[in-house]
């Protein structure tokens, strides 16, 4: 059975993410232990809420080095929503707080003249994904591929490099389309780790 470890620092609602991986037949564990997360074959960094609170939680659990190391060595990691943003350099939401610096981009707020938070389904490539966000990144840093969505203006829907997948939307809440994206990430990850 495929083992998936969800980073649980208390800042995310992990129930939906757990349920989605369980529906895909995975064996799901929650952890904030750096050793376990370092050893785990597949790791998910979920997150809702505030950027600064998210970074504090990661640092206080001493997970920053482990997460950076995983991505640098192409060991499978999926970031979801705030989980994507925490991988970036910094966010307008929490000025002065450094992110993990894995994705070299600045997280910015949607402009004031459109609906925020962006709550709902928006087109991504050939499907629709469910979003719940007020902040986003606008362009792809060098070395990352992915797709965009449009809310007022185009923004990054997800980015991918090797076995790292970072989604601004919630694949776990994006119906069959989201489940398929998660399945593809697992299949892709299985080429570099045994799980």
């Amino acid at each position: 059975m495929t083992q998936v470890t969800i980073i649980d620092t208390g800042i995310a609602n992990t129930a939906s993410v757990s349920a989605a991986f369980e529906r895909l037949g995975c064996d799901v564990a929650l952890s904030h232990d750096p050793g376990l997360i370092d050893d785990a074959p597949l790791v998910v960094l979920p997150g809702v809420g505030n950027f600064g609170a998210g970074m504090r939680a990661i640092r206080s659990c001493k997970l920053d080095g482990v997460i950076i190391d995983r991505v640098e060595n192409n060991r499978p990691l999926m970031g979801i929503c705030l989980g994507l943003q925490l991988l970036c350099d910094a966010s307008d939401e929490s000025p002065g707080i450094e992110g993990l610096g894995i994705i070299n981009a600045m997280v910015t707020r949607f402009s004031d003249d459109i609906r925020t938070p962006q709550h709902g389904w928006n087109r991504v490539g050939d499907g629709y994904a469910y979003y719940s966000n007020t902040y986003r990144i606008e362009t792809f840093p060098e070395g990352w591929d992915g797709e965009t969505s449009t809310h007022g203006a185009p923004f990054v829907a997800y980015l991918q490099r090797g076995t790292t997948l970072a989604c601004q939307f919630h694949p776990e809440l994006s119906g069959a389309w989201g489940a398929n994206l998660m399945r593809e990430w697992i299949e892709n990850a299985k080429e570099v780790v045994s799980c």
Partner: peptide, 25 residues
């Protein structure tokens, strides 16, 4: 596998957190 919003008789932060932990988005 779609979002779930839960309400009705939510009177405290603790009650709301319990619903979120149970799987409400």
């Amino acid at each position: 596998s779609i979002p779930l919003s839960v309400g009705g008789g939510v009177r405290s932060v603790e009650h709301a957190l319990a619903l979120l932990r149970a799987g409400a988005d």
